[in-house]
Every structure is written in structure tokens, then in C-alpha cells.
């Protein structure tokens, strides 16, 4: 079974320790949440995992392959696809072409890219919009399109960065229903980072909590909800 492993990651920025010995692993088939207050090191950790930053110490492996100290595109090619908190679609490409980039980006053939895109767009409910430019889509559709694009690379792990930010309640609800099906239907593990507590609690099987660059808790939503350290660090003093 495939595993994404984060082993003892530390990261210093010219003397400032942003992350200290953070470890966790995500299994194929589960939805794993990463939370923490602002400045807790979440973003740094994400950048390390996706290959944008090299760790000062520790390593990341994806399905047994080393994924640290290699360029971001190679991390993607090892099977980690992602979406972005601030949507980064290719706005002047069509909806269809955007999804195709997910597959041709990792070196896939055009024909297969077309089949996959077709399939994914039907699944995610954007097939009728496939010839529109991405810039013409509404916000919720853009978020969905990013997920379709990420899935097109057939990832082993899908990383969702605030997947429902800016969506209304109905849109969020239907998105969550879809996301919950992914581990089984796509045979992958999901890593979700979000500020929205109820979304994380609702969606994730396991949750990892960071504060000041270190791990303060990991467990099921129920355990996290009642963990005194988490309450103090995160749930207690903010209303997010």
C-alpha cells in the first residue's frame, strides 16, 4: 500500500526555526487533515512536501521514493498532485485543456489525456462547460476544475489547499460529498489543509495539528476536538 511519509522535517530560515522535527504519514485510502494557527508552519511544511523548499533536516518519501531535494515537477511526477489556495488555473486555456495539462504535464500522451479529461469533467460536473475558457467559470467551478486537473495526473496522493475557500454552504456541501468518495474511487490518499474547522472535522479521518513549528497532536477528529493542547493553541483563542 502506498504511503506518503514525512520524516522528522525541520526547516530553518536564517536562524528562525519554522519547523522542528515534524513527522506523519498518510496512507492510501485516507483523508488526512493538517491544521494549525497562522504562523504555525503549515505553509512551510506544504512547500517542503511539494518540493518548493528543501528541508534543513529530515525527508519526505512518496510510495517509497525520496521526494525531498528534488524539483517540484519531479515531486508531481512521483504522484503528488495539488490544488491551490489562491486558484492557479490557466485562465486563457479552455476548461478541457486545463484538465489535460494535468496529464501532459507529467509527460502523458495526448490521446489518454483527452479520455481522462472527458471522464473527469463528467464526474465533477463540468463537462458542459468544457470549451469555455477557465476565466469564464464561476468561483466554485474554478475550484472544481483545479481538482479535476490534479486528478488527471492519476496521483497517488492529492493535496487540497483550502478546497472550499470562497464557496457558499451548498457548494461546499456538495464538494465535500464528492471529496469523500475520492480515496475509494481513485485509490489515493488525500491531504487537506484548511482553516475551516467544521470542514476538516467533517472530511478527515485523521488530523495533525501544528503549533509554533512543532507537532502538538495527531488523531481522529473526535480526539482532536477534545485535546486540551489543541483547544488552547488553536480552537480556544481563535474563532476559525
Amino acid at each position: 500500500m502506498d504511503t506518503l511519509e514525512v520524516n522528522g522535517i525541520s526547516k530553518n530560515f536564517e536562524g528562525v526555526q519554522a519547523l522542528q522535527n515534524v513527522s506523519f504519514s498518510i496512507q492510501n485510502g485516507e483523508i488526512f487533515g493538517l491544521i494549525g494557527p497562522n504562523g504555525s508552519g503549515k505553509t512551510t511544511l506544504i512547500n517542503v512536501i511539494t518540493g518548493l523548499l528543501p528541508p534543513t533536516a529530515g525527508s519526505v518519501t512518496i510510495a517509497g521514493h525520496n521526494a525531498s531535494h528534488i524539483p517540484p515537477y519531479k515531486v508531481t511526477r512521483l504522484g503528488l498532485a495539488r490544488t491551490f489556495q489562491s486558484i492557479r488555473l490557466f485562465k486563457d486555456l479552455t476548461v478541457y485543456e486545463n484538465v489535460e495539462v494535468g496529464y501532459v504535464g507529467i509527460g502523458g500522451k495526448r490521446k489518454e489525456a483527452q479520455q481522462r479529461s472527458e471522464q473527469l469533467l463528467s464526474e465533477i460536473g463540468l463537462i458542459d462547460l468544457k470549451d469555455q475558457l477557465a476565466r469564464e467559470l464561476n468561483f466554485a467551478h474554478q475550484r472544481r476544475l483545479e481538482i479535476a486537473r490534479a486528478l488527471c495526473s492519476k496521483p497517488k496522493f492529492l493535496f487540497l489547499d483550502e478546497p472550499a475557500a470562497g464557496m457558499n454552504e451548498t457548494e461546499t456541501k456538495s464538494l465535500l460529498e464528492y471529496l469523500k468518495t475520492l480515496p475509494a474511487t481513485k485509490n489515493l490518499g488525500v491531504l487537506v489543509v484548511d482553516h475551516d474547522m467544521s470542514l476538516i472535522m467533517n472530511l478527515c479521518h485523521r488530523i495533525h495539528v501544528l503549533n509554533n513549528g512543532t507537532t502538538i497532536a495527531e488523531g481522529s477528529p473526535e480526539e482532536i476536538r477534545h485535546n486540551p493542547q489543541v483547544i488552547e493553541a488553536y480552537l480556544g483563542d481563535t474563532h476559525e
Partner: peptide, 15 residues
């Protein structure tokens, strides 16, 4: 085309 529109995003898509 993807890279000329958003280079960092294209790289993160494996390009």
C-alpha cells in the same frame, strides 16, 4: 501555453 501563462503552476503540474 500553460507555462507561458502561469509558470510556477505549470511546474507544479509536473511540467
Amino acid at each position: 501555453r500553460a507555462a507561458s501563462e502561469n509558470f510556477p503552476a505549470a511546474r507544479l503540474m509536473g511540467v
